[in-house]
């Protein structure tokens, strides 16, 4: 646990572009929320590796979003089921159902569909929110955090040693 928190602090305090960290978090949300063996996750993996998203942030986010996904499972089912049984979309789903790619994607499963809808809907807003949060943290919070007594105690603790080791 200490290592994970240290890793997060290390990522946030590094020189990495906020956009790269935000993108990694958003992509990790897609892979974390949706069932891992869905073909679209190959695309996510390709984007993570190709688009210079921060890999540490991606792995950290994947772990966090997978845990959240377990809690949101009933919500994903409800949203997915509603979407799949919505009459206006019936024609679209029927066409997809008759295409090999979509059948492989298992789109007709309520959880696959629900988690995909949620993660894609949140993708862009979360990207900007994470960006703003990281910039705010670095601009205002980082200096203040460094000066606090708690940080002083932390510097002497195992957590800081772990952070230092990771930060190199």
């Amino acid at each position: 646990m200490i290592n994970i928190v240290a890793k997060l602090i290390s990522i946030l305090n590094s020189e990495t572009e906020p956009g790269q960290i935000s993108l990694a978090f958003c992509l990790s949300m897609v892979i974390g929320f949706t069932p891992v063996f869905c073909p679209h996750n190959l695309l996510v993996l390709l984007l993570v590796l190709f688009l210079r998203a921060n890999l540490s942030a991606f792995l950290f986010g994947w772990a966090v979003f997978s845990a959240i996904a377990y809690l949101l499972d009933p919500l994903f089912h409800a949203i997915g089921y509603k979407a799949l049984t919505a009459q206006p979309l019936h024609g679209l789903w029927t066409s997809c159902y008759n295409m090999t790619l979509w059948r492989l994607e298992n789109f007709n499963n309520s959880i696959v569909m629900g988690s995909l809808i949620v993660s894609l809907t949140l993708f862009i807003p979360l990207y900007f929110i994470f960006n703003v949060l990281i910039k705010k943290y670095r601009g205002q919070l980082l200096e203040w955090v460094r000066k606090t007594k708690v940080m002083g105690m932390l510097k002497a603790s195992k957590l800081y040693i772990a952070y230092k080791a990771l930060a190199g």
Binding site: Y70, D73, F76, H77, G80, Y81, L84, T85, H90, W93, T94, Y97, N98, N106, N108, N109, S110, I111, V112, G114
Partner: peptide, 13 residues
């Protein structure tokens, strides 16, 4: 649905 499994909705083939 079974937790984590969901329900498969079938359409006309």
């Amino acid at each position: 649905p079974v937790r984590g499994k969901g329900v498969n909705v079938h359409f006309e083939e």
